[in-house]
Amino acid sequence: MEDMSAIVLEQADRLFQQHIDKQILLEADAGHWPGSLWGALDDAGLPLALVPDAKGGGGLASSVAASLIRRSAFHSVPLPLAETIMANALWTDAGGEVIKGAVTLAPVNPLDRITLVAGARGATLHGTARHVPWGKQALHALVFARDASGKAFLCRVPTAKINSTKARRNVACEPREDIDFDGLHLSSNDVSPASSCLAAEGLMPFGAAIRVQQMIGGMERCMDYALAYANERVQFGRPISKFQAVQHMLAIAAGHFAAASAAATRSPRYRCSATMRLPWRSQSPVAARPPDRLPPYAIRCTAPWDLRRSTRCIMPLAGCGHGATNGAPNRGGRKKLAG
């Protein structure tokens, strides 16, 4: 099992490395959808990583999928791959078939609520979701909504039907849309009661789990660069890694990185169906352990555009998408107080 996951991750690494270059990242920054990259990820089955074999997916353990998302962030994949993995996992878990193409999740802001009114033929949505990642470019959005009685649903919404009221990019230059769902009608095929794991907090813990893995992937890339550069850059006649002040900075950064990785593998468990336990738990050591050896291709400090992207990718997570950095500690704190 452990060997298998190592192979999967190695293959994914190779795939990302093969298909992501400066040009793709610059174009993505400018708002261009990297279709050929998506095609390659799709061919490799990555968007269905968490869908069970029986439904045509990769059937990966959630801890391996977590590592996969981490690696995708390490390589700055400028696509909603993590969102699609999560959306397909949740939708198939709720009884649906896999969704073709990229899928985003909504709402992502903890304050946004989407409501659902069931009718004779399907349902109608109401409400606005702000800052939805790739809200227009993904083909579908998986929307979490509640009806008047508080019952939770998942809705598969083709983005072609979506009314985007505001588009902008976050600081990593990823597209973010405000979406107005008011009056959007869905057929009953596109609506499904949500699994019990979504009942309490909707998509938030799942979104946060994605963002946390992405942050760690970005941090790992930055650490790689910083360590390599410290040994390479010479000032005052020696590599700056020989200065204690620099050693301390890197040691502190390594501590943060280790703590972040540890925290991410100790997220609270959410029990879904028998096949799914999300967000990630530390089941396989692959997710918890930093790589023993640094991948040689990462040791290239002459590519500042690349580092620039990793740095920027950590930053938007400072925003409130899925409450990854604000909601989570708060929730933990509150729980402790309550306990």
Binding site: R168, N170, V171, M315, A318, G319, C320, G323, T325, N326
Partner: peptide, 13 residues
């Protein structure tokens, strides 16, 4: 600041 008033930052906003 970002902890006291969470909002996703955007240069285009």
């Amino acid at each position: 600041v970002r902890k006291l008033l969470p909002m996703e930052a955007s240069l285009d906003d």
